[in-house]
């Protein structure tokens, strides 16, 4: 046993649409997109890297008012208390969408553009350098013609 891993998970099944969640859809990448990018990367001899985002869903910002019972093990003064969530938790219905929003806003602010055919593919061209990212929830494939470090 190397280490123990635990995660606080919200009870998403207790949520009500229109009150504490609205949109839940989030896109995932199409297989054909991955294959096109890999085929092109092979021909152009681009380097292909893989990145993994730690605890992706915890990064999402909540715009809805979501309340949660105080998790066990946390002592609070007085009874009838609850937690108001500012950030997404695993288990919430909107978690994946909030993560997608957060990551795509960040990539767009860096000058990346979403592909028309697949929104999970973002590309950036500057001068002669070209970079492409494929985002599958918290796994990212990064490729391009710029040399590494």
């Amino acid at each position: 046993m190397e280490r123990y891993k635990a995660r606080l998970v919200a009870k998403g099944f207790a949520q009500t649409e229109g009150i504490d969640y609205f949109e839940t859809f989030s896109p995932v990448v199409k297989m054909a997109t991955i294959q096109v990018v890999l085929a092109l990367a092979s021909i152009h001899r681009w380097t292909i890297q893989q990145l993994d985002v730690n605890n992706a869903f915890l990064h999402g910002d909540l715009s809805e008012d979501v309340y949660m019972t105080v998790p066990p093990g946390l002592s609070v003064s007085g009874t009838h208390q609850c937690c108001k969530l500012h950030k997404s938790l695993y288990g919430l219905k909107q978690s994946s969408r909030k993560w997608y929003e957060k990551s795509s806003i960040l990539l767009l602010s860096c000058g990346y553009q979403q592909a028309q055919s697949d929104h999970s593919l973002v590309v950036k061209t500057a001068h002669s350098s070209f970079t492409a990212l494929i985002v599958y929830v918290d796994d990212i494939i990064l490729t391009g013609n710029s040399t590494m470090r």
């Binding site: 890297q49 730690n54 990064h59 990551s103 970079t131 990212l133 590494m148």
Partner: peptide
């Protein structure tokens, strides 16, 4: 490419495989 990795890392903490 290195730039975008820095941006992602400072925002989300990524594991570079």
């Amino acid at each position: 490419m290195t730039h975008i990795k820095h941006v992602l890392h400072s925002n989300f903490r990524i594991k570079d495989l």
